[in-house]
Design a protein around this nucleic acid. Structure first.
Length: 897
RNA sequence: GGGCGUAUAGCUCAGCGGGAGAGCGCCUCGUUGACAUCGAGGAGGUCCCUGGUUCAAUCCCAGGUACGCCCACCA
């Protein structure tokens, strides 16, 4: 017996365990089946499940469950990402609580008692990972995700690290990885370089300071002349090595080639002519700090300027600046510089200024352009095949518009800075000789060999201490997880993958880089389709964030409404090209849908509908049964195609409509008289059909709502022996569609709906003696009414139903398609209201008739519109006119009454 | 500055070159043995504006307005 209500909390855990016990999720390496591969976007090992993950993985799970049911050999590859900075932060914070900090050659911070070195730190990270890493993968199970957990990978695993090593060395030898000294985005909080993508531009209210730099040199010297420069970053003036003016700027012609004396520092800095200086901007003169500004860096290179780096890695002032400023934090230095210049009378003015400041996306602090040696990938070269692959359709984006975003970025791609000054990550496989000569190799032994060949003797080597950007290893995910560089069966079978499901925010970070590395090392695109889904926002369209307090926790929602309700909601809202605005009321609505399905199953159970493996719907004789089967058969391709085309919301919509509004609202009502009637054959057929149709619908629902459907299949279907998760998608014979039953019962449905509407609008009391008289109806309609008289009487609460009878006087009539609804006058409560209602109908029809008349009297329309459209419009006009005449006579009767 | 997207019922959103839809909310009625986490019915919309293409435009095109997002940025 089914419980009174569906209890997801009790069912979900049990069913998930059954699936795992049956090994339902594992890739089978089965050569008889066509493979289907989905690579999970590996969540950060530090992460926990948020709504974005819930959407992302619901979609993937729908796809893989659907494909398994289609008979494919599915690999859904799970795993986590070591998330360099994020993880290091987490563990560092934990260590700090124990009074431990990393030995970075700096004194201990207050409150801390000891330093630890790199090795010990890395041990601590692994220990942390053992204990609390990867909780998100456990959370994915609660969502119902059917990843192949036995194949779980971690980007710091031995195998994946091997892939990273091989890729780095290979790219270095192909000169696609190189070392360079240039400005990088430096994060002063984490003391590391970050890539362009990890920099977030934030708009802030700042100030624009205008400084007066005294002109030095023979000519203008002593004349007390100044050149005015403006800056948003006063502290960097300590590193100025020039002032630039536009070569054609008339104001400064005599100063080009002269020099200014840098206040506070006393350095003589040249005044150079460079197009970079915009005469329209401020004074037209601009201070040049080549070591701390990307534009200035270029100017510096053009003019051979000195590059003075004024910061240490904490963004404190270093020893290149005058004593008074050394060791100051950059913001403190700013205040001091401004104050000192003010004291010297060198501040021309200070304006309010709104501008953007680059911030580290993880640290949240302003980043500094900083001159260091780093490792770079020649992304522009690697991007070329990746661009071509999308241009030629080897990989397609869904929705297609994202290809434009991809192209835009890939065609303007900059060198990718891949080295990070962190400890947690893949250490750069480079060793340096005593003179700084670099040897890139797979291991220390190979490096030693290279060094010996270079120097002619054995030398001591020092390994590069940097680690690689986390995304460097993620970029290899589609093949490194399969065992590459080993030539495994899995690599051969599951690469290239089929579809990658991800959010647009990750196109640059990950998708683009997988494309580049996949094409380079595997000669094939890593996936044929990239499905880009929306961002999950709150119901007001705001991005969910902890600071706004509008975060919805998927686990809470699963606890409250069940995983299936959450999954179905996300699916129903996941229309292409639009953000998902998630309101709890929506989930509640779909939780009710779960309940509805459950109750439909209970109805079957209570009516002795028993599962029969050999039931053949084609043998049905009852029209209502042929009808519901026909309706079901028409839903299946809608659902299948919607999933195949990534239109998940349409699949959800079609299923919701069918199960609730066709099966429950109408079919089960139609079935009741047969289930409770005397005709044993009809009863048996209806019992079997009701349950069979429900089961088929459960199969169609299964990829979206796996738990509920599995539970009902177990309880009302084949029982313990069979798992829906391992079963095939239903395949229906075309012969099961039944045009005759469709036409008849769809007509009956409409008729009952209309009678109910009239009853309701006329406020007809429940027991009223309402009659339906059929006079001018066509043969079809007469047959339909005759065949389903009992249903119409019961469901529309009609007392008598008669053919070819005069409408009795003293009654009110209404028009329903081809029939007349008759109601004794005494039963009508409000004649005026009924008159108003009929008049409103007349107005509506009048409008319709006028419109159609006009259209059909337009010669152009008749000449150019397709025949069937013209015919259809004619038919509509005829229908409207007929209805109108009946309405008129109904009104006349009402008037004379 | 460049690119992309969105504008349809009170709200959240589907949809479509030829009769404006759903869910939620709202109103009315309903405790008939699956389900009140329910059933029946209803109200509610110049489909953002202007122009163009077309026999026909909410839909296609152009321009505009508003909002959102991404990328790059002025010292």
């Amino acid at each position: 017996m089914l419980d009174k209500t569906y209890r997801p909390d009790e069912v979900e855990e049990r069913q998930y365990a059954r699936w795992e016990a049956a090994d339902a999720f594992s890739a089978k390496l089965d050569p008889a089946k066509e493979p289907f591969t989905v690579m999970i976007p590996p969540p950060n090992v530090t992460g926990s499940l948020h709504m974005g993950h819930a959407l992302n993985n619901t979609i993937q799970d729908i796809l893989v469950r659907f494909q398994r049911m289609q008979g494919r050999d599915v690999l859904w590859q799970p795993g986590t990402d070591h998330a360099g900075i994020a993880t290091q932060m987490v563990v560092e914070r934990q260590l700090a609580e124990e009074g431990i900090e990393l030995d970075r050659g700096l004194p201990l911070a207050r409150g801390n008692s000891r330093h630890i070195g790199r090795e010990e730190f890395i041990e601590r990270v692994w220990a942390w990972r053992e204990e609390s890493g990867g909780t998100i993968l456990k959370q994915l199970r609660r969502l119902g995700a059917t990843c192949d957990w036995k194949r779980e990978r971690f980007t710091m695993d031995e195998g994946l690290s091997e892939a990273v090593l091989k890729v780095f060395v290979a790219l270095y030898r192909e000169k696609l990885i190189y070392r360079d000294k240039r400005l990088v985005n430096w994060d002063p909080r984490f003391h590391t370089a970050i890539s362009d993508l990890e920099v977030e531009q934030k708009e802030v209210n700042g100030l624009l300071w205008h400084f007066r730099y005294p002109i030095g040199g023979s000519g203008a010297e002593g004349a007390g002349r100044f050149i005015i420069v403006a800056t948003t970053r006063p502290e960097t003036m300590l590193g100025d090595t020039a002032v630039a003016v536009h070569p054609e700027d008339a104001r400064y012609q005599d100063l080009i080639g002269a020099y200014a004396v840098l206040p506070l520092v006393g350095r003589r800095i040249p005044i150079v002519a460079d197009d970079y200086a915009d005469p329209e901007q401020g004074s037209g003169a601009v201070k040049i700090t080549p070591a701390h500004d990307f534009n200035d860096f270029e100017v510096g290179k053009r003019h051979g300027l000195e590059m003075v780096n004024v910061f240490d890695r904490d963004a404190h002032m270093n020893d290149t600046v005058p004593e008074a400023y050394r060791g100051l934090d950059r913001f403190e230095a700013r205040r001091r510089v401004v104050a000192d210049l003010e004291a010297l009378g060198l501040v021309e003015k200070i304006d309010d200024h709104r501008h953007t400041v680059p911030h580290g996306d993880r640290s949240g602090v302003p980043i500094e352009p900083y001159l260091t040696d780093q490792w770079y990938v020649d992304a522009a070269t690697m991007a070329k095949p990746a661009i071509e692959a999308v241009e030629t359709g080897k990989t397609v984006f869904v929705p297609k518009q994202w290809e434009k975003t991809y192209f835009e970025w890939m065609r303007n791609i900059q060198p990718w800075c891949i080295s990070r000054q962190l400890w947690w990550g893949h250490q750069v496989p480079a060793w340096y000789g005593p003179d700084g000569e670099v040897f890139v190799a797979h291991d220390a032994g190979e490096a030693a060999g290279l060094a010996e060949a270079h120097y002619g003797k054995a030398v001591e080597l020092t390994r590069d201490s940097d680690v690689l950007d986390t995304w460097f290893s993620s970029a290899l995910w589609p093949f490194s997880t399969l065992g590459w560089p080993e030539e495994t069966e899995a690599v051969k079978r599951y690469y290239p993958g089929d579809v990658l499901v991800t959010g647009f925010d990750i196109i640059f970070f990950w998708v683009a880089r997988m494309m580049m590395s996949g094409l380079h090392f595997m000669d094939q695109v890593p996936f044929h389709t990239v499905y880009i889904h929306a961002l999950v926002r709150d119901e007001k369209g705001q991005k969910m964030s902890k600071s706004k307090g509008n975060v919805m926790d998927p686990l809470d929602l699963i606890g409250k409404f069940g995983a299936d309700a959450v999954r179905f909601t996300l699916t129903a809202l996941a229309a292409q090209g639009r953000d998902v605005r998630l309101a709890e009321s929506r989930i509640e609505g779909y939780r009710n849908f779960c309940t509805k399905i459950w109750n439909a199953a209970r109805f079957n159970e209570m009516n002795d509908c028993r599962y029969a493996a050999d039931f053949d719907p084609a043998a049905n004789s009852q029209r209502v049964n042929r009808w519901i089967v026909s309706q079901l058969v028409q839903v299946e391709p809608k659902v299948r195609r919607a999933i195949e085309d990534y239109r998940f919301n349409e699949a959800a919509q079609a299923l919701y409509q069918f199960v609730w509004h066709t099966y429950c609202d109408w079919y089960l009502e139609f079935a009741k008289p047969q289930l409770q009637g005397e005709d044993a054959a009809a009863q048996a057929e209806t019992r079997a059909t009701a349950l069979w149709v429900l089961h088929q619908a459960l199969f169609l629902l299964h990829p979206i709502m796996p738990f509920l459907t599995e539970e009902l299949w177990q309880q009302t279907g084949e029982g313990d022996a069979s798992l829906m998760t391992l079963s095939a998608w239903p395949k229906f014979d075309d012969g099961l569609t039944d045009a005759e039953a469709d036409a008849a019962l769809n007509w009956v449905v409409r008729m009952i709906g209309q009678i109910r509407a009239v009853r309701s609008e006329m406020n007809v009391p429940p027991g009223a003696r309402i009659a339906l008289i059929v006079n001018e109806a066509s043969g079809d309609s007469r047959a339909r009414i005759g065949d389903h008289e009992a249903l119409i009487k019961t469901l529309a609460r009609v007392e008598t139903l008669a053919f070819d009878q005069a409408v009795p006087s003293g009654s009110v009539q209404d028009v329903l398609d081809e029939c007349t609804l008759v109601l004794p006058l005494a039963e009508v409560i409000d004649l005026a209201q009924e008159r108003a209602r009929l008049n409103k109908e007349v107005d509506k029809l009048n409008g319709e008739i006028t419109k159609l008349d006009k259209k059909l009297s337009n010669a152009q329309f008749l000449a150019k519109a397709p025949e069937e459209v013209v015919a259809e419009q004619r038919e509509r006009l005829a229908d409207s006119q007929q209805a109108m005449s009946k309405l008129q006579s109904a009104l006349e009767r009402l008037a004379s009454a």
